Amino acid sequence: METTTIDETALQAFVLKAVDDLAAGYLGVMVSIGSRLGLYRALAESGRLTSAELARRTDCAERYVRDWLSSQAAAGYLVYHPEEQTFELTPEQALVLADESSAVYLPPAWNVPAAMWSDEAKALHSFRTGEGIAWGDHDPRLAHGTAAFYRNGYRASLTSEWLPALDGVVAALERGIAVADVGAGHGHTTVLMAEAFPNSRFHGYDSHVPSVSEARRNAREAGLEERAVFTQVHADEYEQRGFGLICFFDALHDMGDPLAVLRHAEKALTADGTLLLVEPNAADRLEDNLTVVGQTYYAASSMICTAHSLYDGGELVLGAQAGPARLTAVLNDAGFSRVRIVAETPFNLIIEAKR
């Protein structure tokens, strides 16, 4: 039998990397607990606190809070001051962990891996059989975590950067047009646009009934239920009513037949209408996506995006890292001859498509 020589230095380096990733899994649970109990918020509002002071302010048991604080300090999520035995949340940490309106607020994102763990048995079955998993068949934390994670990023960029980057779209929205938000989920993007452009009407479409209900609630709370209307329907079955703008926000790659969906959208647009496609940021080659963001998206794709696409028919399974060349080719096949990337973030490509 052949013997393999082990490089002990390489082995130890990889073990340390794996342990670091394992610690990140533990950390995610702590972040979720800290967010839900208001521990981060209390620290952000009060400055340096001892474990006893934080426990009193949040009505929690001190002994649990003490270990939670220690875990956060060890992870670099809090600053520990040993001379006072106090813990502090820096302004930068507060933006990420305590400020729910911040564009970089992240605690809800940990609901997604929690849902993935909960759905492991379904994923094992799908990996072995090739069957899909419907979006609605996942742990409910998936929908809520995904919506909350993306909401603030959209709030920071959608109306201030992405829409102005499109040719003539802001002027049209200000005059008043019909807008479709396909795969609208909880409706955050639809509501954001409706708030910004009172002369236009917005129609959100999604096939997931609980998400449509949540979207209607969000529109009602914003006082926009008359101009932001949500309908439960498949992405290639909504009424073609002459839209000046049709949007897909991190949704197209989840669909079983994105080409049919885009062809339906092309027919639903007015002659001078625009399609806005927001997709996960990716390069065209796998070797250029071997990053932390790529790691995250490929993992989510295997259990969520690809799984739903296969459930939804699997005619063309784009996955969460399709890349601009593949997305452009699908848009071209659907009848959009003018395609350009108008903006990008570490997480998203923002693409304009016209006939």
Rank of each mutant, 00 (worst) to 15 (best):
M1L: 07
M1T: 00
T3K: 15
T4P: 01
D7N: 15
D7A: 11
L11Q: 15
Q12R: 14
A13L: 11
A13R: 14
F14N: 13
L16A: 15
A18C: 14
D20N: 13
G25L: 11
L27K: 11
M30E: 08
S32H: 14
S35M: 05
L39H: 04
Y40R: 00
A44H: 10
S46E: 12
S46A: 09
S46Y: 07
S51A: 15
S51G: 15
A52I: 14
L54M: 00
A55T: 02
R63W: 08
V65M: 02
S70C: 02
S71F: 09
A75K: 01
G76C: 10
G76E: 14
Y80A: 12
H81P: 03
T86K: 08
L89F: 10
E92N: 10
Q93V: 00
L95A: 15
L95R: 15
L97K: 00
D99N: 14
D99R: 14
A103F: 12
V104S: 04
P107N: 06
W110V: 14
W117F: 08
E120M: 13
H125D: 11
I133N: 11
A134T: 06
A134K: 10
T146H: 10
G153A: 12
W162P: 00
W162F: 01
P164I: 06
G168Q: 01
V170H: 13
A171N: 05
L173A: 09
V182R: 01
V182C: 02
G183I: 08
T190I: 02
M193W: 07
A196Y: 03
P198K: 05
R201G: 04
H203D: 01
G204S: 10
G204W: 04
S211I: 01
E214R: 01
N218A: 03
R220H: 11
A222F: 06
L224R: 10
E225K: 01
E225L: 01
H234E: 08
A235L: 09
E237S: 10
G242V: 12
G242P: 11
F243T: 03
G244M: 08
I246A: 00
I246R: 00
D250L: 05
L252V: 09
M255R: 09
M255P: 09
D257H: 12
D257Q: 12
D257I: 13
H264A: 06
A268K: 01
T270Y: 05
D272H: 09
A282W: 13
D284P: 04
R285C: 07
L286Y: 09
D288Y: 04
L290M: 12
V292T: 08
T296G: 12
H308N: 14
G314L: 09
G314I: 07
L316A: 14
V317T: 15
G319R: 02
G319S: 04
A320T: 02
A322Y: 12
F336I: 04
R340M: 02
V342L: 00
F347E: 03
F347G: 04
F347M: 05
N348C: 06
L349A: 07
I351V: 13
E352R: 06
K354T: 12
K354M: 10
